[in-house]
Amino acid sequence: MPYNLAISPDFKPDQISGWYIFNTWLQKKLDEAIHLDIHQSFAEQHQAIDNEKVDIVYANPFDISRLVREKSFTPVARPVCKPDEAIIACREGAIREITELPQALTVAQANAPEVNTIGMIMLEPANIDKSNIKIIDCENFVVVARHILKGEADVGFFLAESFNELSNLVKKQLYPLINSQINMIHHAFMLSPKFAPHKDKLKELLINMKIDDKGIQILNDIGIEGFESMEEEDAEFMIDLMDTLLS
């Protein structure tokens, strides 16, 4: 039976081929059969984890608590210099501060729970919470931008990295009202108890990717500079932090 690798469903579509190459590289290095499962939604991925169909997962920070506390997964590595930060943007115009936003707000958001959580927190200083907003769920951040530009949403929540990758034409028509600077929330590779015997080898491989020509090429394809070790206490700290953000 091959092991199963899953990628957080908020991956960028143009990086799918990079993740397949990563999986081929990983199988060769570990000398183990690993199947890459691309889940289209967080619900689908959660179901796969519940059914013990996931052994390695590049997890969204929002899922790490559940993986550690309920599924006994352990952290292996996290990306270097790639914190998950959020931007709240509106259409370029008169509004320059969160506090100038209307109270009955329409928010466009993508399928990125950590971004949406941080976005809601950044609206708090304007006395805006879930009780006085209308949410438009979008397929991705380009669609979020489209809703703002069409005037269907007052603001949108963006992953900062994705906002910065929007076309210049689109960005020129948007105004970033606030940018989070938390620097402590990030994705991470997590392992199931079944895969735990491979933890040390996998950690070494991931950390050394950035000093290996093939590894560097794959990192480039998946949009990551490199990986660094993530210990159990690092994961616990992030779980505690996420717990406070959900209050």
Binding site: T99, M122, E124, P125, N127
Partner: peptide, 12 residues
């Protein structure tokens, strides 16, 4: 204990 502080609204 971990303490996380965020920006409060002026009204609060």
């Amino acid at each position: 204990f971990t303490s996380v502080r965020r920006e409060p609204s002026r009204k609060k």
